[in-house]
Nucleic acid binder design. Structure first.
Ligand SMILES: [Zn+2]
Ligand SMILES: [Zn+2]
Ligand SMILES: [Zn+2]
Ligand SMILES: [Zn+2]
Lengths: 145, 145
DNA sequence: AGTGATATTGAAATTCATTTTCATTGTCAA
DNA sequence: TTGACAATGAAAATGAATTTCAATATCACT
């Protein structure tokens, strides 16, 4: 399997773009941090290593990361887009604590199959889906008592 | 079953709010139109009947409609919140054409059960969920050929 | 190396949905 | 009535994300 960096560089090449200093720094920072994060969070991490990189460039590069398949963008209805690693990571959905925001990654084959079936029953070619379950996590349930 | 108007009026009363002229006009307009719509769309409909009602009031009342249970708010990742009737309507999720935006309402008992199970397996008390399937509708598939 | 066409960038301005502010107006019980 | 408080409209503010634009970089080709 190609390395993530390799994939990104090829993506740039295929689209007549080059790996600039800024893009390299941003991608490295992205690759170093797993988990869910916002564009602003990535920007602030990048800023520490390279204060000269502007936020617009981070937003622009994040878009390239998504297009290249390295990152996945989604939102949990909090008014901000969240990003996470995508390349080499299995698909999953999210279970979120409505109180403390804790996120658990979930997968269910049965659900995935039914989603495909539902789309097909309606004549749709399913391209992607988004599922988020909201609830109260064990910690918050306990605390509330 | 109480009428939607009844429910709204009681909700207002329970919270020390009253049914003002503006709220009445907005709620009536809301009740008259089924389907999915944005705050701006409701505002524009309301404006025709009562040009003196400001958009802030429409936003504010829409929030009350959601809190009272009459409306449901959700977003399909298009940068706008969509609303639809909720009171007296069965739960459903959405299948959206990524090309033309056509929306089909879907329900699947199997999925709903698995969602509850997934939450439980993780110790969460499920409060709500959001699921959107994106695909290409029959019409758009055909046209693309 | 030099040159020009093109791509990239940072800073600041802009967008756009939604929210907030605030001065004014309405509501309602005493 | 009157006073406490709720509600409203207009305009300003918010905040994430995008766009503009002038200044730099990059790269293919001399
Ligand atoms: Zn929690
Ligand atoms: Zn995740
Ligand atoms: Zn379509
Ligand atoms: Zn619907």
């Amino acid at each position: 399997m190609k390395s993530a960096r390799q994939v990104f560089i090829e993506f740039l090449g295929d689209n007549g773009m080059s790996l600039t200093h800024q893009r390299r720094v941003i991608v490295e920072s992205f690759l170093e941090n797993e988990g869910h994060f916002t564009a602003e969070q990535l920007y602030s991490r990048v800023s520490k290593q390279a204060p000269d990189i502007g936020q617009a460039t981070v937003y622009r590069t994040l878009k390239l990361l998504v297009e290249s398949g390295l990152a996945d963008a989604f939102d949990l209805g909090e008014g901000v887009t969240l990003y996470e690693h995508h390349y080499g990571h299995a698909h999953h959905d999210h279970l979120v604590c409505a109180q403390c925001g804790r996120k658990v990654e979930i997968v269910d084959e049965t659900i995935e199959r039914r989603q495909a079936a539902l789309a097909e029953e309606n004549g749709f070619t399913l391209t992607r889906h988004r599922m988020v379950l909201f609830g109260i996590c064990p910690a918050c349930s306990g605390a509330a008592a």
